[in-house]
Amino acid sequence: MVRGNTSSSRDNTVSSVQLRQLKPSFSSRFKEFFIRHLQVFFYSLGLLSRSPFATLMTASALGIALALPAGLYVILDHASQLSGDMNSINQISLFMKKDTSAKNINTIQKKLEAYPEIAQVKHINRAAALQEFQDNSGFGDALKALKNNPLPDLLVVYPSLTHSDPQQINTLLIELKKIKQVDLVQLDIQWLQRLYAIINIGQRGVLIIGSLLALAVLLIIGNTIRLAIENRRSEIVVMKLIGGTDSFIRRPFLYTGFWYGLLGSLIAVLLVNISLIIINDPLAHLSSLYDNNLFSLGLMGINISSTLLLSGCLLGLFGARIAVGKHLKEIEPK
């Protein structure tokens, strides 16, 4: 047989082409990299739209999980804004001793108004206060029976905006208490502090619920991607056999996770806004019962919405990455 000869002569001619490989140019690969990413981006969306019902079910579960902390956050955000508004109208009430003369009170008022910490001082005359109380409280007749006016003169002190943090207010309070003619100093922010404390607890609660539900989102997406991987096992094997890198095989699954995250957070935005619309009417009614200022939650702000969408997408990507990393290793050609 001459086979040995031919093959050895071939050796010389083709040894230079050992494992030569047809390779695209670098610039082509670079450009194609982005084009392929874009293709896979929409290809994975196409895959999802092939089974719209299953996709919608998963996305809705994600939407509900995301809507809950987002909705609570919106409410808390409004509550703290509301209390913030009230904080700026901090006021200190100085109840004067009853024997203080009007002239004296006038001097004190003038003196206080000169303080840099104080923006404004309002004098509420005890006679005027009694009149107003008689008119508005419904105890008019009962009050008329009194011989003396039981109400003291009142100086309402408005601290200037530059001196409104709790520390400075405290210093001011001590200062005010030193005035001889002052009977009682009352700061109307105790309820505000309590509200703050409650909001604080609420914020922690949102943080806990948010973290737990973010974990739930990760698990839902992870499980969905795991099923997708299982469904496409044979395809993955083929990809690996013809030289697909891990990152190439991972890509469509990562984008699928991204789409789930985006769809889920879009549904969450929708759910929160629908809930706000439902709540807003009775809320406006409630606030009108307190005063004339209409308080409304409005709709979700652009900041919260975009944060929600962004975190949804990131959770989707992250959940998919975990699932793919774990399950892709298990699929090897046999």
């Binding site: 695209p24 082509s28 690969r29 044979s234 094997v237 083929v238 190439f248």
Partner: peptide, 26 residues
């Protein structure tokens, strides 16, 4: 054969090239 049955003959054959990053024309 190990073909992908949800893709056309063209897409099946194109797969190794797409994995390597060839341009669509190529």
């Amino acid at each position: 054969y190990q073909l992908l049955y949800d893709r056309t003959v063209f897409d099946n054959v194109a797969l190794p090239l797409i994995i390597s990053g060839f341009s669509s024309r190529e």
